[in-house]
Computed example of a mutant assay.
Amino acid sequence: MAAEPRHMRELPEARAMSLLAGTPFGRLVFCRHALPAIQIVNHIVDGDAVIIRAQLSATVLAPTGTVVTYEVNVIDPHTCLGWSVIVTGLAEWVTDVRDVVRY
C-alpha cells in the first residue's frame, strides 16, 4: 500500500499559538556581536505574546526592542512527521513588576 504524499502547509495563527503554548521550550535566534546566535529557552504564551525567560544582556536586546526569531517544533523521529512554528518579532524587556511576578 502506497503512503499518502506528504506536504507542508501553513497553520492558522490560533493553531500555531496553541502548539506553542503546549510546549515548554524552543530556540531563540538573535544577533550577538554582529553574528547569528541561537539559545534554547523556556517560554509561555500569554494571548498573542510569547514570553521568554532568558539571561540575555543589554547588548542583545536594545531598550527599544530587537528583532528576534523564535522556533519550536515537534518531529516524530520514526515517521518524520510533525510541526514547526516560527515567530519573528520585536523582543522587549518585561519591566512591569506585576507582569514579571505573573510570568
Rank of each mutant, 00 (worst) to 15 (best):
V50E: 01
E13R: 10
G82E: 02
T64P: 07
D96E: 15
A3W: 15
E10L: 04
L28Y: 00
R98V: 05
G47L: 10
A2I: 11
A34D: 15
T64L: 12
P63D: 09
A14Y: 04
V68T: 11
R6A: 15
V67R: 09
F25D: 13
L56T: 06
M1T: 06
G65I: 08
D99C: 02
I51P: 00
P24M: 06
L61I: 10
V101S: 08
R9D: 03
R27V: 06
V94Q: 01
T79C: 07
R32C: 10
P12M: 12
T69F: 07
F25M: 11
T64A: 15
M1V: 04
S18V: 04
E71M: 01
R32N: 09
T95G: 08
L11K: 08
A37R: 05
W83P: 06
G26M: 02
I38Y: 06
I38D: 00
N73T: 02
H43W: 02
H33N: 10
T64C: 11
I44A: 06
I52T: 03
L56I: 10
H78I: 14
L90K: 02
R98K: 11
V41Y: 01
S57G: 14
V72K: 04
H43T: 07
P36G: 09
L56H: 06
D48V: 13
D46K: 06
W93P: 12
I51G: 01
C31G: 06
N42T: 04
L56A: 05
C31W: 02
I44P: 05
E13Q: 08
P36Y: 10
V74M: 09
V60K: 07
H43N: 02
L81F: 01
T95A: 03
P5L: 02
R27P: 06
T64M: 10
T69V: 09
H33D: 12
R102I: 01
P5T: 01
T66S: 12
A3R: 13
I40H: 06
V85A: 02
P12E: 14
V97L: 14
V94K: 08
I44C: 03
V68K: 12
S57F: 10
I75W: 14
H43A: 03
P63S: 07
R6N: 05
A16K: 01
L20S: 07
L28T: 10
V45A: 10
L19Y: 13
R27F: 08
V85S: 02
A54H: 03
A14L: 06
R102C: 00
L11N: 08
V67F: 12
A58Q: 08
P36N: 04
V29W: 07
L11Q: 10
I51W: 03
D76L: 04
M17W: 14
V45H: 12
F30C: 11
S84D: 01
Q55A: 15
L61E: 01
A2D: 14
H33R: 11
P63A: 04
T88F: 02
M17P: 00
V45N: 05
T66W: 07
A58D: 09
